[in-house]
Structures are given as structure tokens and as C-alpha cells.
Computed example of a mutant assay.
Amino acid sequence: MWRADRTPRRWTRHHRKASTTCGCSSGKGRHQGGGVAYVVATALRVAQGPATVALTTAAGLIQPVVMDADCNAVQLAAIVLATAAGSVTASHVNDSGFWLVGRFFNMDVKTTLKTWTVRETTIGLSAFGLASLLFVIA
């Protein structure tokens, strides 16, 4: 953050908010720290298509929330995993990987949606479940 005089503001522990969207230091107990990251990455994946774009854009969008939270290293890793899980969820027709797999295995769109999209969504949800478990344990 920059102040009006363009000098960098030093962030220390006492400058952080006591309650954040992430919930790492909310004082009200822990909740899904990676939930916001997963939802943002999944929404971007559905809207834009490519997993790489969804992952990097979601990381940029949730970065201020994560920086304001008082998360330990394991919780940060869980948030990264949740973001990655959201970026592979729900691959469909606006994703180049969808077409690559469909054409490589000689499948029509309906069959590719039934197989590839369901498989990618299962992988994303499973990874999010493991990331949530890791966040809670940490």
C-alpha cells in the first residue's frame, strides 16, 4: 500500500485487521480459509476457460485478503491448493483442454462433457476437500 506521499507503508502484525474474510485470525474460530479462493477460481474457470488464467487471476484477486489474514505457512499452502483445485473444476467447451481430450479420444461434445468435465470436477472437489482438511488441521 502507498500513502499519499508515495512512501511505502510498513505492515506489521498490529496493523492487520482483527477480522478478515479469510478467517485465519478472526478470533471467532477457524472456517474455510480456502473457500473464497476456491469459489473465485471456479467462477473464473467457468467464465474464461483456461485453468492457467483462472489460477493466476484468482491468486491476484484473493492476495489482499490473504495478506491481511494471519495465516501460518501450512494454512497458506492450503489456500494455494484450494485455488489450484478451483482452477481445474468444471472444464467445458470454452477450455482448450476440453477440445483436445474430446478430439484425441474421438468423442462428441456430449460424451466429453459426461467424462472429461465430470472427471475434472471430481478432481477439483477432492483437492478442495483435502485442502480444507489441511487448513483446519493446521
Rank of each mutant, 00 (worst) to 15 (best):
W2K: 09
A4E: 10
A4S: 06
P8W: 12
P8C: 06
R13G: 05
H14C: 08
H15T: 10
H15E: 10
R16A: 04
K17M: 08
A18W: 09
A18C: 03
C22F: 07
G23Q: 07
C24A: 15
S25D: 15
S26N: 08
G27Q: 14
G29W: 09
H31Y: 11
H31T: 11
G33V: 01
G33R: 03
G35Q: 00
G35N: 01
G35W: 00
G35F: 00
A37Y: 01
A37H: 01
A37C: 04
Y38T: 00
V40T: 09
V40N: 02
V40I: 11
A41S: 14
A41R: 00
A41L: 05
R45L: 15
V46A: 07
Q48Y: 14
G49R: 09
P50M: 14
P50Q: 15
T52Q: 11
T52C: 10
V53H: 12
A54Q: 10
A54M: 07
T56K: 09
T57E: 04
L61E: 04
Q63I: 10
P64S: 07
P64M: 09
V65P: 01
V66G: 02
M67F: 12
D70I: 08
C71F: 03
N72G: 08
A73D: 12
A73S: 08
L76C: 12
L76N: 15
A78R: 11
I79R: 10
L81M: 15
A82C: 02
A82D: 03
T83E: 00
T83M: 09
A84Y: 13
G86K: 01
G86M: 00
G86D: 02
S87R: 01
A90P: 01
S91G: 12
H92Y: 15
V93S: 10
D95I: 04
D95E: 04
S96V: 14
F98T: 14
W99K: 06
L100C: 12
L100R: 06
G102F: 05
R103S: 14
F104M: 08
F104N: 08
F104E: 09
F105S: 05
F105E: 09
N106M: 12
N106I: 05
M107G: 02
D108C: 06
D108M: 08
D108Y: 07
V109Y: 14
V109N: 04
K110N: 01
T111S: 11
T111D: 14
T112V: 11
K114N: 13
T117K: 06
V118R: 11
V118H: 06
E120K: 13
T122F: 12
G124A: 06
G124P: 05
L125R: 04
L125S: 05
A127T: 06
G129F: 00
L130M: 07
L133H: 02
V136N: 13
I137C: 07
